[in-house]
Simulated assay, not measured.
Amino acid sequence: MRRIAAIALVLTAAVIAEEVTRGTLLGLRPLWPLCDTIGGKHATNAVSTRCLTRVCYWLGDCGQWAAPVDWTNRVAPGDPVSKLVLWLGEPERRDGADLLWSYGKGGDGMFRAVIADGHLVNLQDEKTQAPLRGAQQRQQ
């Protein structure tokens, strides 16, 4: 009986480790509500679907998104950088502590995340320094 319990414990630990690092099971469409519940984001490509969590920030595999500006309504001032990178993807550039992304494919310009002490201060257009609407709407 102890042997079965030990095997079950090892299998459970392996599944948890896989989900934390890769998110394959929670990436399956029927399990998307569980991904949402743990604060994850669905990532789908031609080959697979996975559930990304903030752990991707520390692993450096949050990926890049086609239009990160579309996700700015998911972050707000005070959020940690790990949440920012989860929702917006890996930044294209770093400028000191600040992170920069393009608005989308095709060189539409860039927007900046102003970071202080590991947390988001604000999101702004790189050229005009005007706050982004998505971030403004969430603050109100």
Rank of each mutant, 00 (worst) to 15 (best):
M110D: 14
G60Y: 08
G39N: 11
L28I: 11
N73W: 13
L86K: 01
W58R: 14
G134I: 01
Q140L: 14
T37V: 06
R54I: 02
I7Q: 08
T24E: 06
K83P: 00
L99I: 10
T44N: 09
D79R: 02
P91G: 11
V114W: 02
P131H: 03
D79L: 09
G118D: 03
T49S: 15
Q137S: 11
S82R: 15
A8I: 09
G39I: 02
W32Y: 13
V114L: 09
Q124D: 09
M1Y: 09
W101R: 04
Q124T: 04
R133F: 07
P131E: 10
A66E: 15
D98P: 10
T49Y: 01
G96Q: 05
W87T: 06
A6H: 05
L11D: 01
R112L: 04
V81T: 12
L11P: 01
G107E: 07
G109A: 13
W32T: 14
I115Q: 05
W101P: 00
C62T: 05
T44F: 07
G118P: 04
G134L: 02
W58Y: 15
G63I: 07
V85R: 04
K105Y: 14
I38A: 05
W101N: 07
A67L: 02
A8W: 07
K127R: 15
Q64F: 10
E18D: 15
V47W: 13
Q124E: 15
L25E: 06
V55W: 08
